[in-house]
Amino acid sequence: MPEGHSVHRIALQFARHFVGERVTASSPQGRFAEGAALLDGRTMTQSRAAGKQLFLEFDQALYLRVHLGIYGAWDFAGSVGHDPVTRSSGGRMGQTGQHGVESDDDADAPGTVVDEHENSLASIGAPRRARLRMGEQSSTTEVLESFPAEPVGQVRARLLTTTAVADLRGPTACEVLDAAAVQEVVDRLGPDPLVDDAEVGEERMLERVRRRRVPIGLLLMDQSVVSGIGNVYRAELLFRARLDPHTPGASLPEEVVRELWRDWRYLLGVGVETGQMLTMDGLDEEAQRRARRSRADRHWVYKREGLPCRICGTHIVLELAAARKLYYCPSCQQ
């Protein structure tokens, strides 16, 4: 399912093209007809993400909550840009002082490969009348003959302005809430590095990890412990920390947990800016280009079961942990 960086990018896309606009809401599929009727004709006033949850606020304090789950995706069309992130001289969003990947400004965008689970690094710039998919399986664009195009497939919810349209397909959750209900959802979540104060979030994660004897490989996927981490980031964070995923949270030194939070804050910032889960640092120019084009060159251990570890040569192990695939190096992560 989409991890935290994708949901933050979707929130930014709505902020850029829908906030402040009067929205026509509908449910072409019909399953969200009542909720769409409540939102139809209202102005979107805010868009924000918390972990894997998206909250779109409308006037009179009504919210659309969306959790994409495994199969959900948003398709954007109309006058929308490929990159919702506004670059500034302030540096990378979420930057923590660690060395990251270089900008994609010089990448050969048309040749970029769109990998599963990730958004494309395709050409970012001038708005165009195109369909932009942001979600689990792919991010693709296609030129549209007219705007708005007819809904394609099972569209749960359609949000339309005079210049942009967003179609939602296959979400796990799609519901209209009031402010109190939204707060209840947020209160159940662990800290999100792009939402919570960095120091406060670090303390919250530290307390929630070290009070439990559950393996850290499971705790990082628990959205009540820390928000936004999925299978990819879980595997990569643990490898970068050289942590055995079976180590109980309560057994971890305080500084190790703090470093996990800081690294997650850094990687999430990279993911929001680039649209890809780039988890390998220190790459030369050619290696960076390969990483931007192919997931096989982007990660330390994720999806590399049976292949030699990039550090020690030991074969990467794949096992099931709470019915989810867990990748790790049994030598480096002892």
Rank of each mutant, 00 (worst) to 15 (best):
E34A: 15
G78Q: 04
D83S: 12
T163I: 06
D222E: 11
L144P: 01
L238C: 07
P193Q: 08
T247N: 12
R310M: 11
W264Y: 14
Q60W: 13
P245A: 09
D75S: 13
A50C: 11
S120I: 02
I216T: 01
V19S: 05
R324M: 12
L54G: 00
E184N: 04
T279P: 04
L144F: 06
A49C: 08
R213C: 03
S146V: 15
I311P: 05
P245Y: 10
E255M: 11
C309L: 06
A241K: 09
C309E: 05
V182W: 01
G35T: 10
S88F: 02
A77Q: 07
R22F: 08
C309T: 06
Y71S: 14
V101D: 01
K303Q: 14
P127V: 13
V114Q: 01
R292D: 06
A322F: 12
Y327Q: 02
Q98E: 14
P215L: 03
T314Y: 06
E259A: 07
T163C: 09
A250I: 03
T314M: 08
G190A: 02
G190E: 02
V23L: 07
Q46N: 14
L68G: 09
V301G: 03
M277H: 08
L189N: 01
V80H: 00
E254M: 08
Q137S: 15
G306F: 08
G51A: 10
G230C: 10
T247Q: 15
Q95T: 07
G282Y: 13
S227I: 04
T161P: 04
E202M: 12
A126L: 10
R293L: 09
